[in-house]
Nucleic acid binder design. Structure first.
Lengths: 140, 140
DNA sequence: GACAAGTGTAACCGCAGTAGTTACAGAAAA
DNA sequence: TTTTCTGTAACTACTGCGGTTACACTTGTC
């Protein structure tokens, strides 16, 4: 997997910390320590998933598309991972071998269950939770 | 992630289906549909984790190092994934930003929990389970 | 209306990890 | 002693990723 999920969570938490003020991709890139174009690419992915929205033109920038407590990490994960699998299965085992013929189907069930468990755990945290965590940490 | 986990599970299930007969890397590669050297590379990783053992020389090959019901998929996952993270965190966010300074620590806790959930789910299945699944499927 | 400040997206680069492959030294059975 | 294996190093081709530049387009402001 790539670091897009972590960056996306970073960006969303940053937007929440702005409390409604639009954030420019350049400013966001400054906090993530990367390139504005890369942030815009990520933001358009998040916008497509209904997590953010952007205002174009001068004074524009990115905003959360819904309250932070309604955005959980599983949503972010799905928005960003798209169809990439956590644990991929190897292609084309030998169909003339009993194990080769059946291993994919048998293994897929277990991997799907594991991925569901991962997402269920992620779903327990929202952007609002992380915002609070960070506020608590920053206070000391 | 790569397909090594899936291939490892395939190989282990194959060894179990041999009921004690050593399997050569060439034969295994035939079922996986890949290269013997690649299988040997994987097998030495599994041997280091105590899941398989190999007999060298003529008539040699690979064997399970312990009963199939004592090998669960979480063990295989750890043997093969080594220190690769399911969900990596981006490096070097800006320490002068409150969010940038704290996001890694805050996010890491949640990702660790998610990974534990994934492994816990994987731990519920053993190689013996898969062997049975395949036997059941092959019977019809 | 012109300008400045933004977004969205395409195109490209270098790097790193992966699967695949060849080659060969060493071990062990026949 | 020959044959059949393993273990491992070395190399290649491919792919995906993060990073970067470039540019058309949108919008607020003077």
């Amino acid at each position: 997997m790539n670091t897009r999920f972590a960056v996306a969570v970073h960006v969303l938490t940053l937007l929440q910390s702005q409390r409604g003020e639009p954030a420019t991709s350049e400013w966001i890139a400054g906090s993530v320590n990367t390139n504005p174009a890369l942030i815009r690419r990520l933001l358009s992915q998040l916008a497509r998933a209904g997590l953010t929205q952007s205002r174009m033109g001068a004074g524009g920038g990115a905003l959360l598309a819904k309250p932070a407590q309604d955005i959980d990490l599983a949503q972010v994960y799905r928005a960003v991972a798209e169809d990439a699998e956590v644990i991929p299965i190897h292609a084309s085992p030998n169909p003339r071998c009993p194990v080769g013929r059946n291993i994919q189907a048998v293994l897929e069930r277990r991997i799907d269950a594991a991925q569901r468990a991962l997402e269920a755990e992620l779903a327990r945290t929202t952007i609002a939770d992380l915002d609070k965590d960070i506020a608590r940490r920053a206070r000391r």
